[in-house]
């Protein structure tokens, strides 16, 4: 990540939103998608991604499916019903945060 401290708090929201837009995704795919969408600006580290995914899974926000792809097993993540609801809340929280920051750093635009 270009500034990991700033992005860190939003990692769960990023993951949830990506899964909201795609039916199911696997870890590596998430890292590549984020990289592509942000044109390389945001690079989710492996050491941060998997703990976040496992935590969201433990909280019942993600469901898991393991499938054989090529000659190996792949673990896919998808949103549960609770996960879909939580994504809406998290996105609202993030939007509110962005508005507040905007008001603080650039009051003219807010």
């Amino acid at each position: 990540m270009s500034n990991s401290k700033l992005y860190k708090g939003s990692l769960n929201t990023i993951i949830l939103q990506l899964l909201n837009q795609h039916d199911k995704m696997y870890g590596y795919e998430i890292t590549q998608k984020v990289k592509a969408l942000t044109k390389g600006e945001l690079n989710i580290t492996e050491g941060a991604l998997y703990p976040a995914l496992h935590k969201l899974e433990a909280e019942g926000l993600l469901d898991v499916e393991v499938a054989k792809v090529d000659n190996r097993l792949r673990k896919y993540y998808k949103l549960t019903e609770t996960g879909t609801k939580e994504t809406v809340n998290k996105l609202e929280e993030l939007a509110e945060y962005i508005r507040t920051m905007q008001a603080l750093v650039n009051p003219k635009l807010a």
Binding site: Y28, R72, R74
Partner: peptide, 10 residues
Amino acid sequence: TELVDHLANG
């Protein structure tokens, strides 16, 4: 399994 798939993709 998850780590192997990740490393393999990379």
